[in-house]
Design a protein around this nucleic acid. Sequence first.
DNA 1: TTATTATACATAGGAATATTATGTATATGA
DNA 2: TCATATACATAATATTCCTATGTATAATAA
Lengths: 113, 113
Amino acid sequence: MLFSSELIKGTLKTIILKLLSENKRMYGYEITQKVKELTGDRIQLTEGALYPTLHALEADGLLTTETEYIGKRVRKYYSLSKEGKAKSKEKVSEFSDFIDTMKFLLDIKHKPA
Amino acid sequence: MLFSSELIKGTLKTIILKLLSENKRMYGYEITQKVKELTGDRIQLTEGALYPTLHALEADGLLTTETEYIGKRVRKYYSLSKEGKAKSKEKVSEFSDFIDTMKFLLDIKHKPA
DNA sequence: TTATTATACATAGGAATATTATGTATATGA
DNA sequence: TCATATACATAATATTCCTATGTATAATAA
C-alpha cells in the first residue's frame, strides 16, 4: 500500500533533512532507496520532486555538496551545513508537534451540544 | 505557535471529513472555529482554502448541503453522504498509518554502515 | 450613533510543491 | 544484447493552498 501523495506533501524537506542528520552524507538516489526501504515501500520519492527540492535546500544554504565519480558516473553527495543541522532539528520537532495535534484532532469524540 | 502551512497541506480534507463524522452537520465558519479551538490556535484554516475544498468534496459526492437563513444571513450546512462516511473512515485510517510511518522514519538512529 | 469586530459566504490571482514525462548516460545481470 | 538498475537533471502540467478582494449582516464598544 502506497500513501496517497496528498499526505506526503509538505514533508519532503523534513524527511531529507532528517536522513542527512543521521548520515554524514547521502546522494539523491540513495535517499530515494533509503526512504523506500525504511517505509516498506509506502513512501516512494519521485526524482521530479527530489532533485528540485535538494537544489532548493542547497540554495537556502542548508546543504553543501561534493561531486564524485564512481567509474565514469557522476554522484553528488549532500551534507547538512551548520544551519541545515539546526533546521533539521527544528523541522522534526515541528512535525512531531503537528502529529500530536492531529492525533488529538482526529480522535475526538465531540457530539453536538 | 502556528504550524507552517506546508504541514497542513494534504490534511485539510481529512480534517473536514472527520469533523463532519463527529457532528451531524456543520457550516464553514463553524469548522474554522472548531479547528482553531481544538488545536489551541495552532491550526487556522483560511477561507480561501476551506470553501474551495468544501465545494470540491461536495462535487465528489462526499458532502450534501442545506442552506438556512439566520435572520437575513445565509448559512450553508454540510453533512456527510453515505460515501462521505466511508471516505472519512478511510482517510483517518490512512492518516493514522502515515503518522506511524513518519514517526518511525523521523526517529531512526541509523549510522552509516 | 457610529465605528469596529465578528459572522458568513465566495472567487480570482498567484505561489509553492509535487507529478508525469522526457532526456542523458553508465553499469550490471539475464 | 536486452532489460533493469543506477544517477543525474529539467520542462510542462496539475494540485493545493494562501493572499487579497468582494459582498453583506449582526453584535458590541466607544
